[in-house]
Design a binder for these strands. Structure first.
Lengths: 188, 188, 188, 188
DNA sequence: TATGAATGAGTTTTCATTCAT
DNA sequence: GATGAATGAAAACTCATTCAT
């Protein structure tokens, strides 16, 4: 397997369990079954690993989002689709999702470029879509940029809420409640 | 002024600017104009300071919440009141609010007992109120515990969204959009 | 004893035995019987310790030199005096003298500011004195700046030559040969 | 070109710019356009490369010196010849000369055998010649071993002095001042 | 021979915590 | 109680050296 990829996944695994700051590079190396030095062949600093995790995941989401736009779906369906994607990822890659949410929610914590860049790109894309839906009369009179951000807060928050109970039913319930809240919330 | 209180506020100030892990005890001492050693008279560890910040703030909020219950307000008014309280705090004590949200959102990150305890207490209280409102027919058919949690995610998220622009108008707009989203979202 | 002074001397001791690069901060701490961390209270980096050693020693020499100028001595006496001072230091503080010479001779090695600044100041002062002596007809037709530098090379070199044999007689002989070489060398 | 020779020159190039300790084996490999592993086919350790540079250069000088002896020149001419050789090398192979002088001047720094061996061999040969010249009455009453060493200090020092200005004139002036200083210095 | 990814011991530096004053 | 110098464990990161290809 590609070493960089191995490191990315191992790092996410440990970050999600311990948090970025409590994770040592040695831990990541142990998780990946490689030597510390090897990590530094692929990444200049520990922070760069976190950056890379964001890079990859955000790009995946942005691409997914862009893909959605081509299908001329209603705004509700778009949000629903994205939530599906999100919950799917959460189940398949719980560690990476957790890292993504965890660190993204503390923008004050890290000064990394990537994190800042991405953390507004996705909401901005959604805002754009909300605006169009508004012009089409699909949804009510809302402040698109703010509501877009609120929606992402709900999506991110779902990671924590999901964690409280492990049952699949709970996760589905969380998703359906978010959908319901948003659907009704953006109507006129 | 009470030393413990001085430390709490100074710590919150620095935590909010630098994040918990990047803050050194020396920085807190400098901010408080006292010696490092003094901090260790009032707190056993650095983590205990963070704990204490949570302790105080959560208690304030819980008390405020309990106070609200006595006034037999409608659920929407309760939420609105709490949001008022929250945004007021955000303006008066931006640093403490930021710390509260920042570190609370990463339950995975810190192993502190207090934080875990509190982070579900407030949602549980709100869930209780939502349930009653539901029984009264005030609101629609929702999953109270989940929705309560989602509402708190929105409140927490508002700290970040508020930060994007400094204007008071923006803050008011954020608040009103949250209210609107929730109000419509929990109707039948 | 002053801690900074203790560190300076301990560092010089180890540097002189092992060389700057082969010396670890742990070694310095061990030599000084203190903890590594203590060193970092007084110095920001390992390099700063070297810098400080230079700072102190060069300043001593510059002051000594300036003191000599007030006594309106002949140029030969000045050089002789400085050599006396130099050999005296060499005997009393062999480690510091060695470090001084060792690292000063490798200007390419360290990019430190102090070292560069000082390493030409002393020769420049001597050049000035040589020039005046020349104008007075005390000495012959030489290129003052170059000869000043050559004289310092001889002085520095004497540290190594002195090391070959430990006998005091050898050291005296080295000194007297340097004096003789210079005295005759700068005559007409 | 011979690989070992290529490595020697590339290493000298980098050593002269960065100093021995700040040079990594990777840098040498990059300079030579070969792989790190290749270096370890020809040299067992990094130190051995430095050793080899000394080896080659000292041998060149010793051979040159031995060649001089066959021409039954006067001592002054011998020194002058050697200086010519030295300054010529300095212009043609500045990097190697710098390394030679830089690292050789710190016998305390490296524990290498070769360096120690050579650093006294050349002075010893010169001392021998001085002694004979003394017996012939060519020069005055000096301490041959010491003066021989002082002469080499001047030669080595010239590398640094030469560096201060790039003009050829300056280099010539340095050489002529050294000759003059020695010539007059060893007369009776 | 030649390669360069992998190794891990060893380095500098930081910082929570202690304790003599 | 208050101080802040001292501590040393632990962190991030480096780099000479090895070895499978």
């Amino acid at each position: 397997m590609d070493k960089k990829e191995l490191i990315r996944q191992s790092a996410a695994e440990v970050f999600s369990k311990e948090g970025y700051y409590s994770t040592t590079v040695k831990m990541i190396a142990a998780e990946a079954n490689i030597a510390v030095g090897t990590i530094y062949i692929y990444f200049k600093t520990k922070e760069e690993i976190l950056d890379y995790i964001f890079d990859v995941e955000h790009n995946k989401r942005i691409q997914y989002f862009e893909g959605l736009q081509e299908h001329s779906l209603g705004i509700i369906e778009v949000i629903e689709s994205f939530l599906d994607y999100h919950f799917n990822e959460l189940q398949e890659n719980p560690s990476i999702s957790k890292v993504l949410v965890q660190e993204d929610l503390s923008p004050l914590m890290s000064k990394t470029k990537n994190m800042r860049t991405y953390s507004s790109k996705l909401p901005d894309m959604l805002a754009e879509m909300l605006k169009k839906a508004q012009e089409n009369g699909q949804i009510g009179n809302i402040d698109a940029p703010i509501v877009a951000r609120l929606i992402f807060q709900l999506i991110k928050g779902s990671v924590y809420i999901s964690q409280e109970k492990k049952e699949v039913n709970w996760q589905n319930e969380v998703k359906s409640q978010i959908i319901s809240l948003i659907t009704k919330g953006i109507q006129n």
